[in-house]
Design a protein around this nucleic acid. Sequence first.
DNA 1: CTACGTGCAAAGAGTTTGCAACCGA
DNA 2: TCGGTTGCAAACTCTTTGCACGTAG
Lengths: 141, 141
Amino acid sequence: MNVRDNLRRELKGSGHNMTTSRVLVCQKLADTGPVTMRELVESLGKEVDRATVYRIISLFEELGIVRRIPIGWKHKLELSDKFIHHHHHAHCLTCRNIITLPEDSQLELAVERTASSHHFKVTDHHIELHGYCSECQKKLS
Amino acid sequence: MNVRDNLRRELKGSGHNMTTSRVLVCQKLADTGPVTMRELVESLGKEVDRATVYRIISLFEELGIVRRIPIGWKHKLELSDKFIHHHHHAHCLTCRNIITLPEDSQLELAVERTASSHHFKVTDHHIELHGYCSECQKKLS
DNA sequence: CTACGTGCAAAGAGTTTGCAACCGA
DNA sequence: TCGGTTGCAAACTCTTTGCACGTAG
């Protein structure tokens, strides 16, 4: 299912309209991967007003369409597991790139086990690694 | 080793002074656990100026004395592993409490393994769980 | 047509900075 | 004493809000 149809389903399903602005924001997220709010607003230029972008992102968050991923002090936005496959991120301290770590059943299982040993029922989780990517390790050595 | 001595060591070791304000901020963090910047500034009232708190937290971050933990959109601040034992957090969606999950070697190992399978060298990591704590599960059922 | 959504502009938070005064070693 | 630190106030950036107009269904 493509991004547009997926978005339509999510919006309709919760009683919201499919608008030009919402499609534009969603499409931008699908095209560019993790972005900051600033980058998103700027990249949409005058196609979508700043306030509208904030309102759309706020709605998308409520509906679970986007998630915020913490990057040090800041956040970036990306489409949720409903649009792209579950994964985590590794941030390289040198080149600042974000490496995507595909789902790893061992890791997911370990999270599940830790939670249940504390009688905690997990609905969602974030894992964020900091360190050095393979490229930067080579350069540094 | 107590918090004050630990702080002195960290500051001296990096060529910074041990000042009243820095001790106050550090002590507050040690006493209260995870706090937002707003809470920290307010709780220090007029003992320490807002701008100074920001400068101190910024310094503490550089020195690895404090870490920021993501809580949904926001961040909270807490002393790093140098001051308190390594752990992760689970956030209850209902009662908003933060449950501390003590270090779990299985989980730590899984993180290490995922990283190394992508040739990523981890220096630090955050794991954040969202869901329902045992108390709230009882109430909801 | 009607309710929901958007653009604009202005207000409100949160964070940073310049500079003179202050304090710790 | 002297350089590192702090308080104050102002500047800046980020985010939210009110209201009139626009648009999807």
